[in-house]
């Protein structure tokens, strides 16, 4: 089985465990293993705010340097924040001589001493941006191939109308991320079509959900999310499909506040793309983490499983 180095990030180990778990199971069925790094830290979540905040690059670059040192060339991550933070830090050291020197100088002097890590003090090699950071969706598209997924899925999710939601950090900024078009992305649509689902077009799929404002101005996030949800529901979506833990939280749990502030907003289940993949790959329903949702996804799940019973199974 092909293995690929995998960085989970903090959210996926607890609050967003239902994003990770189906991914691990589905990967196995697709013939590759997401091999979690032996040791990892927080990626920092956001890139440095300014040119002088070089310290904010230390965490992501240390992670990437460890990956390179173990001989891996590709690092897969699932969380959009981790993807953005790691990929942009990587871009930074690849393109800025000064930053590369400063971060490496710091890391060389301040290597963490842990009894489970080999001491590398003498043979420190500068990290030059060698590792390729990939989003799991990107890995599925470019390495596994959506066609291959369409061939190996167990269930065709026909009849499901799903609205892809991209949010912001998975795609932007375009010149540093380059995953897909920032104005008209198709990667989630293509993925869902490969699983046999129908996708719903609506105008809010790349409009921000409020991101971290959920912590500082929850009402602002509720307003943005009510626009997204209403728009997708109006176009007849059964569920919205996301890949970011924060988008999931803002769109799912925030629906309680939305129903109070904007009465009449339709309630709609939110699914991680890995859960949709998990359903198509016939993973055990209990492994998909549907109990962690605020809006019950049961109607969608039933519809998906109905298509299984209805002869969609290959």
């Amino acid at each position: 089985m092909t293995r690929v180095a995998y960085y989970p990030g903090c959210a996926l180990k607890e609050r967003s465990a239902h994003l990770e778990r189906p991914a691990l199971g589905a990967a196995e069925k697709l013939g590759f293993e997401l091999d979690e790094l032996d040791s990892w830290t927080c990626c920092g979540a956001v890139p440095p705010p300014s040119e002088e905040r070089i310290m904010n690059l230390v965490a992501p670059i240390r992670i990437l340097k460890d990956v390179r040192d173990t001989g891996d060339e590709v690092l897969v991550t699932i969380c959009d924040f981790c993807y953005n933070s790691l990929k942009r830090a990587n871009h930074r050291v690849s393109t800025s001589d000064l930053d590369r020197k400063r971060v490496n100088a710091f890391l060389r002097e301040n290597q963490p001493k842990r009894d489970y890590l080999p001491s590398t003090e003498e043979d420190y090699r500068d990290y030059l941006g060698e590792v390729q950071v990939m989003h799991l969706l990107e890995y599925l598209r470019d390495v596994v191939g959506f066609e291959e997924i369409a061939q190996s899925r167990s269930t065709e999710l026909s009849g499901l109308r799903l609205a892809p939601y991209y949010g912001c950090v998975m795609l932007r900024p375009e010149d540093e991320i380059g995953l897909d078009s920032v104005e008209n992305p198709t990667i989630i649509e293509d993925f869902l079509v490969a699983l046999g689902a129908e996708t719903v077009a609506y105008p809010y799929r790349t409009v921000c959900c409020g991101s971290y404002l959920s912590v500082s101005f929850p009402e602002s996030s509720a307003r943005l999310c009510s626009n997204i949800i209403s728009s997708a529901a109006e176009k007849g979506a059964d569920a919205i499909v996301v890949s970011c833990p924060l988008c999931f939280y803002n769109l799912d749990s925030r629906q309680k506040m939305i129903s109070e502030l904007y009465p009449g907003t339709k309630s709609i289940p939110i699914l991680y793309f890995t859960q949709v993949l998990g359903m198509a790959m016939d993973l055990d329903i209990s492994d998909l983490g549907f109990d962690k949702h605020y809006v019950d996804p049961e109607p969608v799940v039933e519809k998906a499983l109905g298509s299984l019973k209805g002869g969609g199974s290959r």
Binding site: C42, V46, F81, Y212, S214, V215, S216
Partner: peptide
């Protein structure tokens, strides 16, 4: 101290980390 504790107990960590880092 300005975060609603119920909120802090639920928001995925990237939200908390970025809010503190940015604000």
């Amino acid at each position: 101290d300005q975060v609603d504790p119920r909120n802090a107990a639920e928001v995925p960590q990237p939200g908390l980390v970025s809010a503190y880092r940015k604000l």
